[in-house]
Design a protein around this nucleic acid. Sequence first.
DNA 1: TATGAATGAGAGTTCATTCAT
DNA 2: GATGAATGAACTCTCATTCAT
Lengths: 217, 217, 217, 217
Amino acid sequence: MDVSDTSASSLDSAPAPVRRAGRRSGRKREDVLAHACLVIGERGADATRFADVSEVSGVPISTLQYYFGNREDLLLAAFRYAAQRDLDGVRAAAAALDDPWERVQKVCAFVVGFADEAAPYAWQLWVEAWRWAQRDAEWRTEVLADNAEWRGLLAETVADGVASGRFRADADPGRVARQALAMVDGIGLPIVLEDPAVPPEMARELLIDVLARLLLP
Amino acid sequence: MDVSDTSASSLDSAPAPVRRAGRRSGRKREDVLAHACLVIGERGADATRFADVSEVSGVPISTLQYYFGNREDLLLAAFRYAAQRDLDGVRAAAAALDDPWERVQKVCAFVVGFADEAAPYAWQLWVEAWRWAQRDAEWRTEVLADNAEWRGLLAETVADGVASGRFRADADPGRVARQALAMVDGIGLPIVLEDPAVPPEMARELLIDVLARLLLP
Amino acid sequence: MDVSDTSASSLDSAPAPVRRAGRRSGRKREDVLAHACLVIGERGADATRFADVSEVSGVPISTLQYYFGNREDLLLAAFRYAAQRDLDGVRAAAAALDDPWERVQKVCAFVVGFADEAAPYAWQLWVEAWRWAQRDAEWRTEVLADNAEWRGLLAETVADGVASGRFRADADPGRVARQALAMVDGIGLPIVLEDPAVPPEMARELLIDVLARLLLP
Amino acid sequence: MDVSDTSASSLDSAPAPVRRAGRRSGRKREDVLAHACLVIGERGADATRFADVSEVSGVPISTLQYYFGNREDLLLAAFRYAAQRDLDGVRAAAAALDDPWERVQKVCAFVVGFADEAAPYAWQLWVEAWRWAQRDAEWRTEVLADNAEWRGLLAETVADGVASGRFRADADPGRVARQALAMVDGIGLPIVLEDPAVPPEMARELLIDVLARLLLP
DNA sequence: TATGAATGAGAGTTCATTCAT
DNA sequence: GATGAATGAACTCTCATTCAT
């Protein structure tokens, strides 16, 4: 649980920033954010100090403040970065699949960490974001917008499947997307807590079962 | 968002402790915990200071420490208190219902705050507990045990319904309980965030729809 | 260095109170003081809390306060107890010796811990007393009086030796007593610090050498 | 006994830092340490709070912590500073004297505060250091090293005197140094306590008498 | 642009002490 | 006479932030 101890495991393996930003400073900024996400996932947002991010990213504290201003601004920037990155990732992964049923499963699996492409600490960052969104308007906007993106992604896929006849004709894309998202969020809980009563394999199966009842003819 | 400002709204309406404990200190202890739960729900556990609980409950800081020792121990005690209280509440509410289908709906509705008997901030406390459980073994144990209780409650009801023929004969109580719980946890999210895309009434309907597909013949 | 850890070594072996006080409470009081001395020697007076003495002696904190009043009063009482006990001890030990030269050595050896009769932590308690005496009038009085006792004891012995011809005729009892006491106090330092440059055996020899130069013909 | 009251007497007369360090912070750091030594000497190390040093030195508490980290580290740094300063002082004073006998007296007189060059509270700081050294390994190392320096200084001087024939030919520098140091430490006690039975002039004379017996032919 | 130095605000914790029984 | 409950005071320490360079 200690960042400095896990340096060998995950915090050092910050995924290389996805897009090659033009400006050099943008490059460094993204690097910092990727590291910040790791710290947030590891410690939790409330417990994430400038000092932590500084230590992990190698960037001096005052430089972090120069870049991001507030501590809270840094946190929000990190969440925005992660949200975008995850969305980019899942879109890329989904685009490679033709079958709507497989696409739905991929999208759902992504957040919870089933998929290999899943970003580290994706679900933990989600929980952190929820918490802040409950109490901060700016975060709330951000989270709701992100939620809408995911919902749209799912709805679109569902609509595809309905159109192609792969899914039940009476499946309402918007409704099912909301239900699927809820299932995903809910089934993620025991996974992250490593609840022995709901091992990952069972969780996946239970999730897919619900999805099937909602979608498959 | 400020506790002292909202004192008129909810923080003062600490629910009267349920059982009249024999010891005077036990009485006061529970009172403090009820108040602490309100603060935690309002501010979040990380942001809950001794000073906040002291102010809201009227008990001096050093007395809080005398009672609970650590700040973290206070937090954990509050969660334990809330978990037990909610469980007691939902059990009482469910016991009054004969129809398994209505019982299932009542139990599910309880957590998310649909039901009138629902404890204040029940869902917020849940999220807080999840977060801590991710990083603290003691919390994890507590949360998993509590999860098991709810799962058991649901499974039991499902089994009743299957036995009475109210539910589909092929409904596996354990499986459905896990799925229902996931759905409840997941659908709570947009409710708490007051996501305009998923208003409470829709959330309830979407939840019940899934439950119906899982249970009803 | 931890009291609770050394419970097996020394803190439990509180020497049985010397005199059989008439009152039962006096008995318990002495017992507490003997324990308090151990804690003071182990931790230092400043770091000696009511809680420590309570834990070691088994007497509740409020009872300690009921007995001794202030924390400082407890400390002072403990020092008085130890000082008297040590003085009683060394007088008894010295009385058993006929030869003044042996008596002098016995008295000197007592404080530093050479002698078997030496009380536990005698020297540590001395240092603690010095420190407090520098800043507190009451302690100062106590320490000076105790110093005078030891000086008198030594002077008396020196006078005996001079009278009996065992010591140099020109040895001034008062002067030599002061010098001997200084030597004792000074040579105790490396012993307590376990200075490898001045092992106990060497310390004893160096001390006796000086005494010999002062006293022997 | 109160620092704020005695500000006019001694605490304001912080000796100007000896060497003009290059860095500005080094300058300020030394200044703080000089002040800290005064507080420690006045109050005792255990009773020395950040607030005291802050008030006397005019440096904010958080800055003290920024400089030294811990309270204990501040204390240790202060002792190191004082030890070095005293050693430098006595070496300078001794270097000015040709006669070994005078040099020995000067060195011995220094610690106890006879000499004019003596640092304020030198002996009090010694006692504080002893106490901590009994219970803390780091302090012990420091104190033993410092002790060794003083012993070496004395032994060197004795060897000089023996070589020059000023001292007895059979005087063993190492032995005599140990004995002299013990005498110095021991005779300092009544001086600091202002024991009326051993006024400073008598203490000095008693000390020199012993030294003479050890060294002079 | 980037960074080290410095500092104020705030929090947890310890501990002696008071009070009621 | 003896003891548990309760509480205020004091202190250390962490951390975000400001300022100067």
